[in-house]
Write a protein that binds this DNA or RNA. Structure first.
Lengths: 187, 187
DNA sequence: GCTGCCTAGTCAATGATATGACTACTCCTA
DNA sequence: TAGGAGTAGTCATATCATTGACTAGGCAGC
């Protein structure tokens, strides 16, 4: 029930079309909430019917027309209600961890390979987050920005994503090294 | 499609009933895969029909009879296939992060309250993980256990869970402190 | 002139998850 | 002696999420 709130939160910093939102949910917001385009279009339609966002058509010559959406006052009120509702913690849900859980009874080689691959992609994500953080804080240093900058919400969520991927990387490296040391013949 | 593999992985270290599995998915496995009892019973029925697990009835006097399940060779093969299938990374999906993303346009007080609450529950989870880790490694120290112990899979996944909750706690504390400092009048 | 990619959005179908209620029996406590 | 908590499992349903295919025009490269 929180995709709607994620959409509202994303629309807080500007007018976006469904297509643009899909991009955002693929890079920055995917950090804590991923959604495919179809979900977004469906959710946008519902939000508009309920008056939480309003859309306006933009006619374009050289490419398909689009509809840009903004949050209404009702939408902002809905977000405020959401923020005041106790949220329950949701934990990790990860195939790779299921594999590691079972690794003692399986051939460790493919699991090790996946751990090493994941460590690389996690490291790449850390760098992406670092660039996003730099862009968000502009020419201020982190401490000053967090104290005085406007819109620190996106910065804070980005920080959380960075830490998550950093931990992911470290853990994958450690697990892969351990499994490799224990099974020196395979892989 | 990976609940089935999580169930198979959980059944690797013994015979369990649906009810017992529900407990396991509520504490240790919830770490990386949560499921409600109804899902488990449905999945167990499917897995048995497909011959990946086999159940045996245990008749009890003073409480309801139960069915205990074990993984078959076919089930082990299914797990091996799963472990060799490339898995895509899945990230955090968390209501609290949606709230923080939007916090600049809302009253920060309820968000700060939730962050502080979450920091406490995360700290409690860290302690639970610490006890689980201690129990898993018995009287060995961590380094020795990881080098020589049998069944390090559950230990590694538990380590990942611990790190996740530790990061969660640190981030919640930091975010709450920052927001509090920026809005000294509310909350 | 063909192929592939980008923008913009839609339809349909299946699979996974969440929610709530319900049976039935036992033990313990107030 | 009634109520609550624990064990063991089931049913129904509504919403969410995932997958794949599909329209349609424009632009760039080979």
């Amino acid at each position: 029930m929180a995709l709607r709130h994620a959409v509202l939160a994303a629309l807080l910093d500007g007018e976006y079309s469904g297509y643009q939102l899909a991009k955002i949910f693929d890079v920055s917001l995917s950090n804590f909430w991923y959604a495919v385009p179809q979900q977004l279009y469906a959710e946008l339609a519902k939000l508009e019917r309920e008056g939480l966002i309003s859309g306006r058509q933009v006619i374009q010559r050289d490419r398909p027309n689009k509809r840009l959406f903004t949050v209404t006052d009702a939408g902002l009120a809905e977000l405020a209600t959401f923020a005041a509702t106790p949220s329950k913690p949701s934990s990790i849900r990860e195939d790779l961890l299921v594999m590691v859980q079972a690794v003692d009874r399986l051939d460790p080689a493919p699991v090790i390979a996946q751990l090493e691959e994941r460590a690389v992609t996690a490291a790449a994500k850390v760098e992406i987050f670092d660039r996003m953080l730099q862009r968000l804080r502009g020419d201020l240093d982190e401490e000053t920005f967090l104290r005085e900058g406007d819109r620190i919400g996106p910065y804070l969520t980005c920080l959380r994503g960075r830490r998550f991927e950093q931990e992911n990387r470290d853990w994958c490296d450690q697990a892969a090294a351990l499994l490799r040391a224990r099974a020196p013949l395979s892989g």
